[in-house]
Computed example of a mutant assay.
Amino acid sequence: MSKVKVVACSGIGKVFGLMTREAVLEVTNHLVPDKAETVCLAHVVTGDKAGSEKVKGCTCITVDGCPALCSAKSVENAGGIVKASFRSVDEMRNHRGVNAGTATALTEDGWQIIDEFAEKIAAKVNELAEEE
């Protein structure tokens, strides 16, 4: 069985990008490493053969920071099958007024949000892994 590919946006300069990367790393390194792995979005975007081949025809979850959906669009363009898409900006709507941090560092509250966000993504990984 192939692992579910979980691809984070590369959002630089905003806390939302940092949140996507940290949540994906929590999912793939700690919560469900036996069922999920991450793929570098930069390799997918630039058309790197190895990066594109990692997602082509595979079940993918994308995690974007903003409404531009760079990860989701790029994975789809590379032939990945996006079965679920998450956005950290949506996750922050559940935590209005909370300071999650900056583009380079999360606050304690930010890390708590990441834990919740990662749990949601991991639950989707488990669901998709059971389907295959």
Rank of each mutant, 00 (worst) to 15 (best):
P67Y: 13
G65M: 11
I81C: 13
G11D: 10
E116S: 08
T38W: 06
L69V: 04
D64F: 04
V55Q: 05
V63S: 04
T20R: 07
V32Y: 10
T102G: 04
S74P: 07
C60I: 10
K5D: 03
S10F: 05
R96F: 11
V15L: 13
R87S: 05
A118V: 12
A42D: 09
L41E: 01
V63I: 02
E53Q: 14
E116T: 09
L41A: 00
E108S: 15
D64V: 01
K120H: 14
T62N: 01
F117R: 02
D109T: 07
E127Q: 08
A78I: 13
G65Q: 14
E91V: 11
G47L: 12
A78L: 12
Q112Y: 15
I121T: 10
R96E: 13
D48F: 11
E116N: 07
G51E: 00
V4C: 07
S10D: 12
K120R: 15
C60E: 10
E119Q: 07
W111N: 11
A103L: 02
H43G: 04
V45Y: 09
V32M: 09
I113C: 08
G101N: 01
E76Q: 02
S2Y: 07
L128R: 05
L69A: 04
L128Q: 06
N29M: 11
S85H: 15
G57T: 00
S74V: 09
A78P: 08
E26L: 03
K35F: 14
S85I: 12
E37Y: 11
E127N: 04
R87A: 05
G80S: 01
A8Y: 03
T46E: 02
M1S: 10
N29D: 13
N94D: 09
A100I: 10
E127R: 02
F117A: 02
K120V: 13
T107N: 06
E132T: 12
L25I: 02
D48C: 03
V39H: 00
V98W: 10
M19V: 05
L18M: 04
M19Q: 04
V82P: 07
T59K: 11
K54L: 06
D109L: 09
R21Q: 15
G79Y: 11
Q112E: 15
P67T: 08
G97C: 10
G57A: 01
V82Y: 15
K120Y: 15
G51R: 04
S10N: 12
